[in-house]
């Protein structure tokens, strides 16, 4: 875990690398999240000051987008597609199975901090659903058995 001085230093480095972009806030937030795993609260005032926007605006942007996290996720992030093409081949069943197997609902993390379960609306894998993206790796035709196997393999 970084202390607040180190956090500030890293955020400043990210700002230096991105500040010249036109409309730099999203690339900055992506870079901050890639660095810390979430967007730390203390990063927002620093970013706001550098971009000459209010803290409320920076907060508003960050919370508008589903991708940005206010808190760190679990060690593994399981995202299951909930969109129509995956529904047509059993995504709702697979989601119910995942919730039961993990003992959590959408947007929750298992008590041991191992797995976070999130919905995602379309990975463009609509001809080989149900689709999932787990720790950044894509999976197609995910049925209950395949999901059990994948979740079982997460350390």
């Amino acid at each position: 875990m970084l202390d607040s001085v180190q956090t500030k230093e890293r955020v400043e480095e990210i700002l230096t690398a991105h500040i010249a972009l036109e409309g730099a806030l999203l690339p900055i937030l992506h870079a901050v999240q890639a660095e810390f795993g979430h967007v730390p609260q203390e990063a927002l005032p620093i970013i706001a000051k550098a971009l000459n926007i209010s803290r409320a605006e920076a907060h508003g942007v960050m919370t508008f987008y589903h991708d940005f996290r206010e808190k760190p996720a679990g060690a593994h992030v399981v995202k299951l597609c909930r969109a129509e093409a995956c529904q047509a081949v059993g995504a709702d069943r697979v989601a119910a199975h995942a919730k039961k197997a993990l003992g959590i609902d959408w947007h929750e993390t298992t008590l041991d901090g191992k797995v976070t379960l999130e919905p995602i609306f379309c990975l463009g894998l609509c001809a080989c659903g149900p689709a999932a993206i787990i720790d950044g790796k894509l999976f197609g035709r995910v049925d209950e058995a395949k999901l059990t196997q994948i979740i079982g393999g997460l350390k």
């Binding site: 036109e22 806030l25 942007v61 987008y65 589903h66 991708d67």
Partner: peptide
Amino acid sequence: EIRVGAGAYVCGEETSLLNSLEGKRGV
């Protein structure tokens, strides 16, 4: 320049996309 969205479906709407590209909420 390649820019990356952040999980908001509505940003497929052109004016919302432009706001997002400018670093704003995708309204």
